[in-house]
């Protein structure tokens, strides 16, 4: 089963603003406001761990079953990728 590694697009400026990640596109034309789960996935998508490891962290921190975490993580990573907020390696 493929276990890709998401890597944030380094051209995206961002901050965790009181618990919510706020992402700014390179030309400042788009602002993205992430919910708590998406914020955690974004923070962990630093190229050092695969989707499965990110899902494991969510499973521990959010008290959600492992299967749901894995599915949600994959879905969000692909959504981020479609918006060029990150790339997926492997």
């Amino acid at each position: 089963m493929p276990d890709p590694v998401p890597v944030q697009n380094e051209k995206i400026a961002w901050r965790n603003v009181a618990g919510a990640a706020v992402l700014v596109s390179p030309d400042e034309s788009r602002l993205y406001w992430l919910n708590a789960t998406a914020t955690r996935i974004w923070e962990l998508a630093d190229g050092s761990r695969p989707v499965s490891a990110i899902a494991d962290v969510l499973h521990r921190e959010f008290d959600v079953d492992a299967g749901t975490c894995r599915a949600d993580t994959e879905r969000l990573v692909r959504a981020f990728e479609r918006k060029s907020l990150l790339r997926v390696e492997g």
């Binding site: 901050r15 603003v17 009181a18 706020v22 602002l31």
Partner: peptide, 20 residues
């Protein structure tokens, strides 16, 4: 300013985060 932008500054103001 977009709705999200306004929301961002409001949140930063509420938490006194030096966003700029």
């Amino acid at each position: 300013m977009s709705e999200l932008g306004a929301r961002l500054w409001k949140r930063a103001d509420a938490h006194c985060i030096p966003l700029r």
